[in-house]
């Protein structure tokens, strides 16, 4: 099968959905004539023109709000944040209007908007540009949050997000944009809320999302080669909806679990998952639930130290060995 980058996979999803539905358009800072700050939309403006690829001014609250309003009338906007870190200036639009308009109208209206962009640390840009707001956003009923860990998922989930009648926030990762995965030529979509077992195993479960799933997969390799321990890796794919069944199934299978995320630990996604496991599968646990997260401080700039702050495979292995 052909291999393409995570970046190319997202671009293909956008192009296919633009061609499929005339209501789909992409808006954001530098998405059109500049070809995208991270080149995700490269070439799309030349192909689809001003109507479908719209350069927005640096005005996140304004253009995200505009997208939500436009979606109420049936358009399917795909709004790009150059970084999800910029969502904070648009929080009222995203999380009051995006999440709650449908509810407050008693279900009379829908907000079929997709908001996408990278949400990750690890690029030495300091605390303001290194946010991972999936936990914050998922705390708002009405929103769906997707964190693809690879090119195949990025394409399939992006297409699903655009077709979804609810607001979907897709959180990508700049460190993955250039990496390649196998992606079929033929069209496919990936259901929302279905976790994916990246590697089967029987001794311990690593549950992760986004790039942390790749880290967990690497850690599983080390567990096998150096410690003869067979780890299962479950990639959540979406934070909300959350595939609780898949989480419980892997825990019941291996009876040991390490949760891995690049989110900060305090009130992080894995705090929620840990709660679900202890409530629903307490009797299946042979050891305490362990977590590996980014170190609980604002993201540091210094290059070697930021590498330490974000989870790596060695840290996951060390934590796993505590309960094996």
């Amino acid at each position: 099968m052909r291999k393409i980058t995570y970046r190319q996979a997202i671009k293909e999803a956008l192009a296919e959905e633009i061609e499929r539905d005339e209501n789909v358009f992409v808006m954001g800072e530098e998405v059109a004539q500049y070809n995208g700050a991270y080149k995700v939309t490269e070439g799309l403006w030349q192909k689809y023109g001003d109507k479908r690829l719209v350069d927005a001014p640096i005005s996140e609250a304004g253009f995200v709000g505009l997208g939500i309003g436009a979606s109420m009338l049936g358009l399917r906007p795909v709004m790009e944040f150059m970084f999800w870190s910029f969502c904070y200036v648009a929080f009222d639009q995203l999380l009051n209007n995006g999440s709650f308009c449908r509810y407050m109208s008693g279900g009379l209206m829908n907000v079929p908007i997709t908001v996408r962009g990278p949400a990750n640390g690890g690029t030495n840009v300091g605390a303001t540009h290194s946010h991972t707001p999936e936990n914050l956003c998922a705390n708002h009923p009405g929103i769906k949050v997707v964190c693809p860990s690879n090119a195949y998922d990025a394409k399939g989930l992006m297409k699903t997000a655009i077709r979804d009648n609810d607001p979907v926030f897709v959180m990508e990762n700049t460190l993955l944009y250039g990496q390649e995965w196998e992606v079929p030529e033929d069209e496919y979509i990936i259901p929302m809320g279905k976790a994916n077992i990246l590697k089967e195993g029987k001794d311990i479960s690593f549950i992760a999302h986004g790039r942390a799933a790749i880290t967990a997969l690497e850690a599983a390799g080390i567990m096998a080669s150096e410690h003869d321990i067979d780890a299962e890796v479950l990639d959540l794919r979406s934070i909300r909806p959350l595939d609780v069944e898949a989480i419980l199934a892997t825990v019941k299978k291996t009876n040991r679990v390490v949760l891995v995320e690049e989110n900060k630990p305090f009130c992080g996604v894995d705090a929620q998952i840990s709660h679900i496991i202890q409530e629903e599968a307490f009797d299946h646990l042979d050891a305490p639930i362990k977590r590996v997260s980014s170190i609980d401080a604002p993201q540091i700039y210094s290059m070697p130290l930021e590498k330490i702050q974000i989870p790596d495979a060695r840290r996951v292995v060390k934590k796993a060995l505590e309960i094996c």
Binding site: F25, K51, A61, G62, F63, V64, G65, L66, G67, I68, G69, A70, S71, M72, L73, G74, L75, D92, Q93, N96, N97, C101, M104, S105, M109
Partner: peptide
């Protein structure tokens, strides 16, 4: 289209309605 509780928060939404009509 509402009925919005946060001062000024509805104004970008209204702008989006106009954008959709033009689109």
């Amino acid at each position: 289209w509402g009925g919005h509780g946060i001062v000024g928060g509805q104004v970008p939404l209204g702008t989006g309605l106009a954008f959709a009509l033009k689109y």
